[in-house]
């Protein structure tokens, strides 16, 4: 049996993707129209990382999970009403912007500092989890920068699977081109694992888990430290949504096999 892991998941909130996301220029730089009032969800990639972390902690007795998050604490509190119900974790809150326009280096510094300040964290047993990308700040470098600042050199990006070998080594599958995986073996923590989608379904909400989590989450939210990160000195000439291409057909009662065949044909083409 492997020694317990200390798993730190970095992740924050993003506007609910179903909402109308309209870029606007504000006093603090680019933002979204009515951003403070839009409902938020946990960044989907960070969500995968969190669920994988909880699953790993369940398998390896004694492991602990922290979610380190940078975002407006009032919105994080709303988010916790959902996320805290899914899996057990402890929350570390940095009260600041979750804007997709914040500079990744500043964000990484803030996160790394917060991680270093977690009481009882064993850096030798640290697995740093997060998303390999983000729905809001998709430069895809934040987690790597946090790892660098924490001095973690073993970094795995686009992870879809993590196995623990009998000797405690990490068996990691990373996505590479062409639907193939790169298989790595990491003898021991610490390591950075930036998750793609993983393979776990989103856990059901369970208010009983939530009530247990909230005993520690609410005090953390109340004493959250304000953090200033942003885009000072950066000027954006234009900001626009990624162009969308939708060739949608609405067809009823198509067998799953036919749909799969069409997807394969599309991939081959």
């Amino acid at each position: 049996m492997a020694d317990p892991f200390h798993i730190v998941v970095c992740g924050s909130l993003v506007p609910d993707p179903l909402q109308t996301l309209e870029p606007v220029a504000g006093a603090q730089g680019p933002g979204l129209k009515n951003e403070t009032m839009l409902p938020a969800v946990l960044d989907p990639w960070a969500g995968h990382a969190l669920f994988e972390a909880a699953n790993l902690a369940k398998q390896v007795a004694g492991s602990q999970v922290w979610l380190v998050t940078l975002g407006p604490k009032a919105k994080l509190q709303q988010l916790m009403m959902t996320i805290a119900q899914k899996v057990p974790f402890q929350l570390v809150v940095l009260d600041g912007t979750a804007s997709g326009f914040a500079d990744a280096h500043e964000v990484a510094t803030a996160l790394a500092t917060a991680i270093q300040g977690i009481p009882g964290l064993d850096r030798n047993r640290l697995l740093l989890f997060g998303g390999c990308a983000s729905a809001s700040r998709d430069s895809g470098v934040t987690l790597q920068l946090v790892g660098e600042q924490l001095g973690i050199r073993d970094q795995f990006l686009g992870v879809d699977e993590l196995g623990i070998e009998p000797d405690g080594a990490l068996h990691i599958l990373e996505r590479v081109e062409g639907g193939q995986y790169q298989v790595s073996r990491c003898v021991a923590p610490p390591a950075v694992l930036a998750w793609a989608t993983g393979s776990l379904p989103e856990p059901h909400n369970n208010p009983q888990v939530g009530m247990m989590n909230m005993r520690t989450i609410m005090p953390q939210l109340q004493k959250a430290k304000p953090v200033t990160v942003g885009c000072a000195g950066i000027q954006y000439d234009t900001v626009k949504l990624p162009s969308q291409r939708r060739d949608t057909r609405v067809v009823r009662d198509v067998p799953a096999a036919d749909i799969a065949r069409e997807i394969v044909d599309w991939l081959k083409a």
Binding site: M81, T82, Q85, H204, N205, P207, G210, M211, M214, M218
Partner: peptide, 12 residues
């Protein structure tokens, strides 16, 4: 918070 959570649960 207990009620807020059960609201979110029910919504999902």
């Amino acid at each position: 918070f207990d009620i807020q959570m059960v609201v979110q649960s029910s919504r999902s």
